[in-house]
């Protein structure tokens, strides 16, 4: 079975900037794939090349086995892209624009039921005859999503669909993408909300400065950070809490605040029991505690900051 998206040695330059440097990875069919990375990492550039909106300087990409340049028709039939920018055509209403977009993909009246369903699921029914110019940002975002799906693509790419979107719409979009995924589509999502990626994505690629710095399952990535945070509340309220602790605990300390303390503990090397014991010996009684597992955010920052420092050293 061909990969949903297969990226082979892709390079892209913008003048002196090496925006994509030898990107190679596959997105398996049916996966929910996260494409993460800081601003300017090259995510949108890579998506543009997938979509044929931009051309790679070297390397190739195929969608469902169809090369995006040589076999552009089939590749584009297989791909639906929700662009990052809120672009729209102010000449048309929602109904007109969906009919047009479906037409560009060669579909006529036979596609009406699907368009109606999209309008319904994306809660656009009220605005169906409204000119795009007069829609709110969130509504325009929904129309962009509907436009990307008019031809029932196998692979759906959403470039930061939840940026600047309210809580309700964000949750609606999550439900909607999950449903698309359950119905068999491959989803590629870029987002700066790492909880979102953590909740939705099974597999994740992290880009930084045009390079893939991680490509792993979500579990694999999370296990790269073997630390957890222990938050404690003790019975003494004092600004001098830190001085009361034994030296080895001071090294693990993240912060203290009045009677609250948090420690960063290695999952295997540090035992919570030892910490509690040491606190007791220091005359502190623990009244409450909870632990926090490392999230994607921590892994992400570790990976992208590390690489940035390294590149900075090489450069400077």
């Amino acid at each position: 079975m061909a990969a949903a998206v297969s990226i082979q040695g892709v390079h892209k330059h913008f003048g002196a900037l090496h925006a994509l440097n030898d990107i190679t990875f596959d997105v398996p069919q049916g996966s929910f794939f996260g494409l993460l990375g800081p601003n300017g990492a090259g995510k949108s550039t890579l998506i543009n090349i997938m979509a044929g909106l931009s051309r790679a300087d070297a390397g190739s990409i195929s969608i469902m086995g169809h090369d995006v340049v040589r076999d552009f028709r089939m590749a584009r039939h297989s791909l639906g892209v929700v662009p990052q920018e809120l672009v729209y055509d102010p000449f048309f209403t929602v109904r007109e624009i969906l009919k047009l977009q479906s037409g560009y993909f060669g579909h006529g009246a036979e596609n009406k039921a699907w368009l109606d369903e999209l309008v319904e699921t994306l809660s656009l029914s009220d605005k169906i005859d409204t000119n795009l110019h007069d829609l709110s940002g969130g509504m325009k975002r929904r129309v962009l999503i509907a436009q990307a799906l008019v031809h029932k693509p196998d692979v759906v790419v959403l470039d930061e669909p939840t940026a600047g979107v309210d809580v309700e719409l964000r949750q609606a979009l999550w439900r909607f993408t999950k449903r698309l995924h359950d119905d068999g589509s491959t989803i590629i999502l870029t987002t700066h909300y790492l909880e979102e990626a953590e909740a939705l994505c099974e597999k994740i690629a992290i880009l930084n400065r045009g390079e893939v710095v991680a490509l792993d399952s979500k579990q694999g990535l999370l296990s790269r950070c073997p630390y957890r945070t222990l938050h404690l509340t003790v019975d003494k309220k004092t600004d001098k809490l830190k001085e009361l602790l034994p030296e080895y605990l001071q090294l693990l300390l993240v912060e203290t605040h009045k009677n609250e303390i948090s420690f960063r503990l290695h999952k295997t090397e540090h035992q919570i029991g030892d910490v509690l014991e040491a606190l007791k010996n220091a005359g502190l009684i623990v009244v409450d505690l909870y632990t926090e597992e490392a999230g994607l955010e921590e892994v992400f920052l570790g990976l992208t900051e590390f690489v940035s420092k390294e590149t900075a050293e090489v450069a400077g």
Binding site: H77, F105, G106
Partner: peptide, 24 residues
């Protein structure tokens, strides 16, 4: 979905360009 008709894709773009000027 199976690929739609090529002729229709061309027609849709042509129609859009005509409707665009007819709207103004």
């Amino acid at each position: 979905m199976k690929a739609g008709s090529r002729a229709y894709g061309f027609y849709a773009l042509f129609a859009k360009e005509v409707v665009r000027f007819l709207k103004v």
